[in-house]
Nucleic acid binder design. Structure first.
Length: 405
DNA sequence: CTTCCACGGGAACACTGGGGTG
DNA sequence: CACCCCAGTGTTCCCGTGGAAG
């Protein structure tokens, strides 16, 4: 038996950390002072919002571009500046930032807004009308400009059940201006999904996209600059070098996603630390890449409802053939029956298929088989073995009667 | 031109859980 | 405390629609 006394002290004292200031790599919370390669976008955003300082109402703005293009960071920084400048000029400006993944219903958005201005709206229970009016009255008490940032609005939109609601929410938020006497309000919507933008332009005559700003993905060189900037303050001297940075940039250049690039660097650093290396090597980065991939699969598949997992499992079992919705539904029914679960209707299943498509696990194409009707051609987008591995961690599925296969 | 099958929007329903009122 | 009101969630039911093979 090893002497375990003081095991933690030993761990802490013997392992030297490679990090100098790790929070620089935590992309969620850390915003650097210089946002590299985003000058154009930042300037454009600022120029639209600037009219608020003259007491006018800025147009509503739609910001779009792939994830990791620093849309949120730029919007936050600019909004901050706006508030600061407003203070100097004696203008009351408030910014409300809402992550629509959390505030994903009308009620929650307006409750949050009302509470931001001193309201005491409970998180459930009140009629919508009352919540809306509470916000309206509180916000309208004094002369001010309110900028509402709706981050990730596509997430709400592409969750089917919320589509109607997001339309109505946008309607309410844009209409509220005409009900204010003193206050002015405008919106910034942020979406990484171009389909949302398209839809908005096509069908909804919403004023959300009055002004649009596109954030292009970073190229490899730009990613290098960004990584270099972060690495300098995040790591101790000599931990990362030119080749570390280059490889990280190269591996993530395809998406142009700064968040992914930074995350890769961070995890590579952690792995290097665990392996007691004094610098990050290419093999650490490769391992980090693998780890990220695994985490992503675990994170999306594990928490799914059993019913949804079953749909995915059905797709997995049919993988060899060309899968249509009808075939998949037959397979699903078989499985559900074998597990004596409720058998859901095909309508519901097609919603699950849609959701799986939204999380990039499946890809679908609507095709017409002429005489044989119209259907969806479904394809798996992830390594079947990996999906299988994760799915089978669910005991329910593990206990499948083996005759099914 | 017909036919067929699933697409996908929307209404309705059941159930849960919290708020407000007398 | 009993009772009703309300929003949220997961689901079913209903139905008009698309588009190429036959």
């Amino acid at each position: 038996m090893v002497n375990l006394k003081g095991i933690f002290e030993k761990l802490i004292n013997t392992r030297t950390t490679l990090f100098q200031d790790k929070k620089v790599l935590l992309d969620e919370t850390y915003i650097p002072e210089n946002l590299l390669h985003r000058e154009t976008e930042a300037k454009k955003l600022a120029s639209i919002l600037a009219v608020a300082l003259r007491g006018e109402t800025p147009s509503n703005i739609l910001i779009y571009g792939k994830s990791g293009a620093e849309k949120t960071a730029v919007a936050k920084v600019i909004a901050d500046e706006l508030v600061k400048t407003g203070k100097k000029m004696g203008r009351e400006i408030s910014v409300v930032y809402l992550d629509c993944q959390i505030f994903n219903t009308e009620y929650r958005v307006f409750a949050k807004l009302a509470n931001q201005f001193g309201g005491r709206v409970p998180f459930t229970g009140w009629p919508m009308e009352k919540v809306y009016n509470t916000f309206k009255e509180l916000a309208d008490k004094k002369k001010q400009y309110i900028l509402v940032i709706l981050d990730q609005i596509d997430k709400v939109f592409f969750d089917r059940d919320h589509r109607k609601e997001i339309k109505h929410l946008l309607y309410l938020l844009t209409r509220i201006n005409s009900e204010f006497k003193n206050t002015k309000l405008s919106l910034i919507g942020i979406s990484p999904d171009l389909r949302f933008v398209k839809y908005l332009n096509l069908k909804v005559q919403s004023s959300l996209g009055r002004e649009e700003i596109e954030f292009l993905p970073y190229n490899e060189e730009q990613l290098k600059d960004i990584l270099k900037q972060r690495a300098e303050s995040a790591f101790k001297e000599g931990v990362s070098d030119e080749s570390t940075i280059s490889l990280c940039a190269k591996l993530t250049a395809q998406d142009g996603d700064a968040r992914k690039a930074i995350d890769l660097l961070k995890i590579a650093g952690e792995i290097a630390e665990i392996e007691c290396s004094d610098k990050i090597t290419d093999s650490h980065i490769k391992k980090a890449e693998e780890k990220i991939r695994r985490n992503k699969i675990n994170g999306t598949i594990l928490p799914m409802l059993i019913q949804k997992k079953l749909v995915l499992y059905s797709a997995l079992l049919l993988e060899e053939n060309r899968i249509t919705t009808g075939e998949l539904y037959q397979k699903y029914k078989e499985l559900a029956r074998a597990l004596s679960l409720d058998i859901l209707t095909i309508r519901r299943i097609s919603d699950f298929i849609f959701e799986l498509e939204m999380s990039d696990i499946l890809s679908c194409k609507v095709i017409s088989l002429g005489r044989y009707g119209r259907t969806k051609e479904i394809k798996l987008e992830m390594n079947p073995l990996e999906i299988k591995r994760v799915l089978e961690e669910d005991e329910g599925i593990l206990n499948f009667p083996s005759f099914l296969f």
